[in-house]
Design a protein around this nucleic acid. Structure first.
Lengths: 106, 106
DNA sequence: ATGGATTGTTTCGCTACCGTATCATTGTTG
DNA sequence: CAACAATGATACGGTAGCGAAACAATCCAT
């Protein structure tokens, strides 16, 4: 709990890009759960409507955290892919958590 | 990292009240750091402007997660206090984290 | 090929957040 | 007491989020 506190505090302070709770959760899901990820699937997983995912992908795409491509086997689908920027963002978050965890353990 | 993913996912899904990252961080700070807490102090800690704190206290106050009282020794100050509702909210969050932590450890 | 189902996007009206600047109230200092 | 400083709240214009509903594109079944 204290770890969450310190890590979230650092996240808010640094606030690389200011993501919402949903966006951060979405980002974690995309990067930690094996692909493929579709809009519909992500919406169902998070328990939100599809436009929420579309908008989140818009803004996170603009930040370079995530990328969309059309599925060629079923061109109705959109496949969400990871990016270098997103990987860096998560790596940074992981560092914060680890650092704060270490400090709390002293 | 996976723990954060699962716990945040559950938090988004359940979505008791839908707090922003800043609001959640603020709530954690108020409940995990010894009082007294003032608007100015919280703003400095989170690295945000004072109106952000005022607004967050407005909405979180309306949700019963937090309470404001005037400081009688210096009536310019506002002291932020914990509430039963806020304690319950955090307890719930703690439960989620612990549960998910247990499941991941299986 | 045409009617229906499925997927992701867009539009709509609304709400909530943001930072800057300003304000009212209270304390402090000369 | 007057001028100044400090604190929290408010006003303002702008941005971004929300769900519901409508939409375009694509697939599928007949």
């Amino acid at each position: 709990m204290h770890l969450w506190h310190s890590a979230m505090l650092r996240l808010v302070q640094s606030e690389a890009p200011d993501l919402t709770l949903r966006q951060l959760s979405l980002l974690l899901h995309i990067y930690l759960v094996p692909p493929p990820h579709t809009v519909r699937g992500l919406a169902a997983t998070l328990g939100v409507t599809k436009p929420v995912i579309t908008r989140a992908l818009d803004s996170m795409g603009a930040l370079g955290l995530v990328r969309r491509i059309r599925d060629d086997r079923d061109r109705r689908n959109v496949i969400i892919q990871r990016t270098v920027g997103g990987a860096l963002y998560l790596e940074k978050l992981g560092d914060i958590i680890i650092e704060e965890g270490r400090e709390l353990a002293l």
